[in-house]
Design a binder for these strands. Structure first.
Lengths: 219, 219
DNA sequence: CTAGTAAGTGTCATATATACATTATAAACA
DNA sequence: TGTTTATAATGTATATATGACACTTACTAG
């Protein structure tokens, strides 16, 4: 009996959907591919799993190599393995996702990708492989996670708010992540019931309207 | 530029957790391994994905080859790829699960496994690889799916009931699948609200107690 | 006819979701 | 200074889901 499995092996990659809010709109981090297939196409970052690294570690490494983005709390989305999803050879990919702040983030595309940029989710380019499907699945999952219970993902939403924020700002963030408008009064009830808001007893100034109360969160 | 990716490739398998109720207890379908590693150990069925088949098709094929079980509605659980989960070489597995009736099912282990048997989930043998972890994840998912909304999995629960069943029988099935006891009155409210039960105007006989009304379901 | 056993049934409290309209307060401007 | 404009702030009613909880009914066996 031989000591290696005598079956042909597919390639295995990890692909990562990184979401952020920029300019009040949901964005996703895409890279421009450096090599064929789909050279010069946009794609979600990802690459080959090394033989000695765990799937999530491979995902983290590829993400950093292609975009410079590090230290994000990835969550597995699932495996995608339609036989012809890669025109070169059989490639099975394990998809991950995360929600991160991106303002002070410096994208470093140089090494393993021709470019790395944030794209508005409402204005996406044509994507390589089956990445449009993976991304759609991730988008759906994001919307569910953001309000359904107090998950890591929901907590990440507050990263898009300044230290001191108004409830209107918070509502805008959650609306962006969910992809739908929320009722103001119901949102305020929800956030007060589910998060530990501190009323800072300060108000905004300068607006041509009634000033808003400022809050901070404690986790 | 070469036409194949010059990275080493891991092996990729599909592993399948098949649940059923037998004797009123939750069981899982395991196979006895025919070859090393873990020769003669029990394991959840599974095997190598072929180069031209989709993940779910590979899972279905392996399941049939190793157990004789066919035509089950598999759902993907996720990918497991810890580097040393297989002592021989790097193997990444994609796990699937399903809930099926098993009474008239004939297990045919002969071909690709030394044996195939149903095991009581409360009396499992030591499992090969990391299959205990995969199985634990599947068990948890099953419990959630059975009552949370009207899913395929929830519908499958009725397969464990005869054409005409009492509400007590139905409750027993759902208790087994959830792994916890349910309140009789609350269960009756729930099943009446969520399923289309037909009161057959018949009653059981022969019990040393008050006869029970018989129902059937319509989907 | 009595004992045993499982069937059958309703209410209250709590939590969550959703719909919906008016008043309050500051800045800008005439 | 007072009028306009823009956003902030607030409460109630309804519907639905969840979970706790105890007594009466009806058959069988002895």
């Amino acid at each position: 009996m031989s000591y290696t499995y005598d079956y042909p092996h597919p390639a295995v990659t990890a692909d990562i959907c990184i979401f952020s809010i920029r300019d009040g709109k949901l964005h996703v981090l895409l890279i421009k591919r450096l090599v064929d297939p789909f050279k010069d196409s946009w794609a979600i970052p990802g690459g080959f799993i090394k033989m000695d690294e765990d799937l999530i570690d491979g995902a983290r490494r590829e993400l950093e190599e292609e975009t410079g983005v590090a230290d994000v709390p990835l969550e597995q989305l699932g495996a995608y393995g339609t036989p012809d999803r890669d025109p070169r050879e059989r490639v099975i990919t394990v998809a991950f996702m995360a929600l991160v702040p991106s303002d002070q983030m410096v994208l470093a595309a140089a090494t393993d990708a021709a470019d790395a940029r944030w794209f508005d989710m409402d204005d996406l380019p044509k994507l390589a492989f089956d990445h449009d499907r993976i991304l759609a699945d991730a988008r759906e999952r994001l919307a569910h996670k953001v309000t359904n219970r107090v998950t890591e993902t929901a907590r990440a939403a507050f990263q898009f708010l300044p230290e001191k924020f108004t409830l209107a700002q918070a509502q805008a963030v959650f609306e962006t992540l969910k992809g739908e408008d929320l009722d103001k009064r119901n949102f305020r009830k929800w956030i007060a019931a589910n998060w530990d808001l501190v009323d800072l007893k300060e108000k905004t100034t300068g607006g041509r309207h009634r000033p808003a109360a400022l809050y901070s969160v404690e986790f």
